[in-house]
Design a protein around this nucleic acid. Structure first.
Length: 890
RNA sequence: GGGCGAAUAGCUCAGUUGGGAGAGCAUCGGCCUUACAAGCCGAGGGUCACAGGUUCGAACCCUGUUCCGCCCACCA
């Protein structure tokens, strides 16, 4: 694939919007993101955590998918058969809520519409809005194989859901039972334990009088939910609580307001230290009371309906909302003398994670998955290392959660979702579950069967995502090639909702892990560490950021922030800062392009070739180091290190030193010199673009396309490898000295307040012959880069009093500056310097005088300390000489 | 209550086998030096939360404390 338009040169300014949109279109037209399925290549697969089909892109997706795209682009360039599987989730409750809110605005509701019409409405909504998030993901440059986009409720995935449900049911791992569940009275549905948020709220603790039935006394009981007393079926105390040991086993209480009689039970579950040590037991509306009720065979008295409205068991309170009822109950208890006291009390209240309504524990018929056997397999897969978790701090959390896992409630009393494929017989009550829709009860043959109303928990279908999207239950070639997937990248917040369940389902149905690695990134917060929320007004909208700084700038920033195990405090200033980096890269590219275009047919230096000049050898050595660092970082999911390694290389090594240094060569009349500079520059810059491409695909692709020669797509070129021929430690050492000398001379200039354009005379005193020869060799470059019209290099010499002076390594830098020296200021600085040196020297000598140190520390460390001591002493001496000169001056 | 993480420059953060404290932004000074003022050249700035311990040597390992954040379980 080569370019179809002739290369025009790069524009003067970096116009990210235009070029990003242009490349997006090109990549899609040429199908660059399509999964490759060549023989003999390793596969690399990621399934996208499917966003809510009706959602919009938020910063969490931007981060999550940027990291995935970096990995996918990297492995595509490594030559793997990459597949990034995209898709969306039907997100049962939250999508249904959105549509229900719409209906409410229109003055109607789903019950008036009926199931069929309502579902049509949701599908219609999905048709209209379902493309939004996908378009936004594409705008970020995410290179999913978009032709394969799936939806958790499309035909194929629904078939996978049916298959899994039927199998698990037949294996006895799915059952229907009565249980106390978390009930959202607003969503009218059961919620799984992990769909309940616990928010601290201010409430009250009411102390109530429960009189003994025989009138011989009373027990005081504390509760935060007084209205539930209507459903009390016992009073519980600890069996060894001496305060209540006088009460006989058959003690009964008269339930206030109702006059019902309830028994006393004794159970070790009761905390003696809390409140009065006596507990009211409401088996139908409290999870622990439910267990207690089962143990003691208590009645379950349900006192409100599925909307939180008091029912017939609430007697006079029937028809009241649960909170209204609480008020009335408190008033009545008070009026009748049953309320002893009321104290304010802050405690955690369970709330629906979707709508924040206070949930109620509620006894109902629900469907469950017996997760224990499935969970054991998942734990085993992680323990054996078949699945690795990054960062590893999550292992412990994972195990403890899996150890305490309870059966998974998979039924939801909503309409939007996969309707449970179970048919109930009205005659015999039997349940029929088959792959094909049944027409008669399998137990009694009756035709009088109806399908279960409930739908499945959203996470049921997403648990199948790694294999359902590849065509399962068909044995497709995609399934054979791309399963197990390589890595699952997501926020730690859905480790249990989703990741753990994928493990269970994958292991059970595919007989293999769904992914080899799990990379859990932190959640994005604002720069102060607060959660982003609309109400706080601290939301950073990725779409705004793209508009302001471009997708590349946002991507680079997110990568730079993605250090493992830290929360990500995103600051828009940083996005702006990295936008400047892209501008820098752009301008460097213009410079490179300008010079490469001067030589027809220029080709980059081959990886086996070694240039003659020091600066080129040094640059290639640094490039090698950067290539190694970047690969290592990406291989270990250290995205921030990859980003900062490239940043440092481009800006500070490539631009600040290399380009400045080789300018003269690039303009040289000597064709050989100019050619070597161009060829090396070309090679280094090409590799740089490749290294950066996974992080910032747009701008690198644009620049790549404008370089000389046949240009295919950068995204399809091989990722750089370090070339052994280019390793050159000596060049690195030599260049370091030269750079330090140049910086030192520049510091003298600046300190003396010299105009940047002014030429100086300088002297370098260097006792070391080898170094002196080096400096001599690069005399012209030094003079050029420090703007010296005269440079004298000698083994030794005297330093005039009125000269600027600096010391780098064992090299003295001298710049005569008659009348320009601020002797007092310099002396102050030198005095500070002397103090630092003395302190450091004392520390180092202390070490060297310690036989423990010289005896135990590795030889390399000791000799390093010796060198350091010698160096410090020399610098101290030179500093004192300088001080003497300053004193002599003024 | 249990668990986890964090505390490093004014701000946001790096610092992965313990061996001379770093970046970006911000601040100060000087520059339109023909790739780049979205820039260049310099400068200043930190008792690495606190107290002990291990070690020849600690930002890093151990113990405790303080403060912050999160997760799990919840005390009715």
């Amino acid at each position: 694939m080569t370019q179809d338009t002739p290369a025009a040169s790069l524009g003067k300014t970096y116009e990210f919007k235009e070029l990003e949109e242009r490349w997006l279109a090109r990549w899609h037209e040429d199908n660059c993101f399509a999964a490759r399925m060549d023989e003999g290549r390793p596969a690399y697969t990621i399934v996208i955590p499917p966003p809510n089909v009706t959602g919009v892109l938020h910063i969490g997706h931007a981060l999550d998918d940027t990291l995935q795209d970096i990995l996918i682009r990297y492995h595509r360039m490594l030559g793997h058969n990459t597949l990034w599987m995209p898709g969306t989730d039907h997100a049962g409750i939250s999508t249904q809520n959105v549509v229900e809110r719409q209906l409410a605005k229109e003055g109607t509701d789903r019950h008036q519409l009926g199931r069929k019409a309502f579902l049509d409405r949701v599908w219609q909504w999905r048709e209209e809005k379902g493309g939004t998030i996908i378009r936004q993901l594409k705008r970020m440059g995410f290179s999913c194989d978009w032709n394969r986009e799936r939806f958790t409720m499309d035909e194929g995935l629904s078939r996978a859901v049916r298959e899994v449900f039927v199998c698990l049911y037949k294996e006895g791992l799915i059952y229907k039972g009565s249980y106390i569940v978390n009930w959202c009275p607003r969503c009218h549905t059961a919620l799984a334990d992990d769909e309940v948020d616990h928010d601290d709220q201010d409430g009250a603790l009411y102390h109530l009088r429960y009189p003994l039935a025989d009138g011989s006394g009373e027990v005081i009981i504390a509760t935060t939910r007084p209205e539930t007393m209507l459903g009390d079926t016992a009073v519980a105390v600890h069996p060894e609580d001496e305060r209540y040991s006088h009460l006989p086993a058959d003690t009964a209480f008269l339930l206030p307001l109702t006059g019902r009689t309830i028994p006393l039970i004794r159970d070790t579950y009761v905390e003696r230290d809390f409140g009065t040590g006596a507990l009211k037991v409401t088996p139908a509306h409290d999870r622990n009371d439910y267990e207690l009720g089962l143990r003691h065979k208590l009645d379950q008295v349900q006192i409100f309906d599925d909307q939180g409205v008091m029912n017939e068991n609430a007697g006079a309170y029937q028809g009241l909302d649960r909170f209204e009822c609480r008020k009335r109950i408190v008033e009545d208890l008070k009026a009748q003398g049953f309320l002893v006291k009321e104290e304010s009390y802050r405690h955690a209240v369970g709330c629906c994670y979707r709508c924040k309504t206070v949930i109620e524990p509620y006894v109902s018929e629900q469907w469950f998955v017996s997760v224990r056997p499935l969970a054991d397999k998942a734990v085993e897969a992680v323990k054996s290392g078949r699945i690795k978790i990054y960062p590893d701090t999550w292992y412990r959390t994972f195990y403890s959660w899996m150890d305490n896992i309870r059966d998974w409630c998979i039924s939801r009393q909503i309409w939007w979702g996969h309707r449970i494929p179970a048919w109930i017989c009205a005659d015999c009550g039997g349940i029929t579950v088959e792959m094909a829709d049944p027409t008669a009860c399998t137990h009694c043959g009756s035709k009088n069967i109806t399908q279960e109303e409930d739908v499945l928990d959203t996470w049921f279908s997403s648990a199948l995502w790694p294999f359902s999207t590849l065509g399962w239950p068909e044995q497709t070639k995609e399934l054979a090639m791309f399963y197990p997937t390589s890595v699952l990248v997501t926020g730690f917040d859905i480790l249990f909702f989703w990741v753990a369940r994928m493990m269970m389902m994958g292991l059970h149905f595919m007989g293999d892990v769904p992914f080899r690695d799990v990379y859990l990134h932190a959640l994005v917060r604002d720069k102060h560490g607060k959660k982003m929320s609309k109400s706080t007004g601290n939301v950073i909208d990725p779409l705004d950021m793209i508009a302001q700084y471009g997708a590349d700038a946002l991507r680079f920033t997110l990568a730079a922030f993605a250090a493992q195990g830290r929360e990500i405090r995103l600051d828009t200033d940083r996005i702006e800062g990295y936008g400047r980096f892209l501008n820098k890269l752009w301008n460097a590219a213009r410079f490179v392009e300008m010079h490469l275009s001067k030589e027809a047919g220029i080709k980059p230096l081959a990886s086996g070739e070694k240039p003659g000049k020091l600066v080129h050898r040094w640059m290639l050595h640094r490039l090698n180091a950067t290539v190694r660092e970047t690969r290592k970082a990406l291989d270990g999911y250290n995205f921030n290190e990859a980003a900062s390694s490239c940043y440092q290389f481009v800006w500070h090594y490539f631009c600040d030193w290399y380009l400045e240094w080789i300018k003269k060569d690039l303009f040289s009349q000597d064709a050989g010199v100019a050619h070597e500079a161009r060829a090396t520059l070309f090679a280094v810059f090409e590799s740089t673009l490749k290294l950066l491409h996974p992080i910032i695909p747009f701008v690198t692709e644009e620049i790549w396309s404008k370089l000389p020669g046949e240009r295919g797509y950068l995204m399809l070129t091989p990722f750089p490898e370090a070339a052994p021929a280019w390793d050159d430690e000596a060049a690195d050492r030599e260049m370091t000295l030269l750079m330090e000398v140049i910086s030192g001379l520049r510091t003298i200039r600046t300190t003396a307040d010299l105009h940047p354009g002014a030429q100086i005379k300088a002297e370098i005193l260097c006792p070391n012959g080898e170094k002196r020869a080096l400096l001599e060799r690069y005399r012209a470059e030094i003079m050029n880069l420090v703007k010296a019209e005269d440079l004298n290099i000698a083994a030794s010499g005297t330093v005039p009093n009125d000269a600027g002076h600096a010391l780098v390594q064992d090299v003295e830098l001298v710049v005569p500056l008659s009348g320009l020296i601020d002797a007092v200021g310099e002396l102050e600085k030198l005095t500070r310097e002397e103090g630092k040196l003395l302190k450091e020297l004392e520390r180092v000598q202390g070490k060297l005088n310690n036989p423990q140190f010289t005896g135990k520390a590795p030889e390399a460390v000791v000799s390093k300390e010796r060198e350091k001591a010698a160096d410090l002493e020399a610098r101290l001496a030179k500093t004192r000489e300088s001080m003497a000169r300053m004193r002599a001056l003024g």
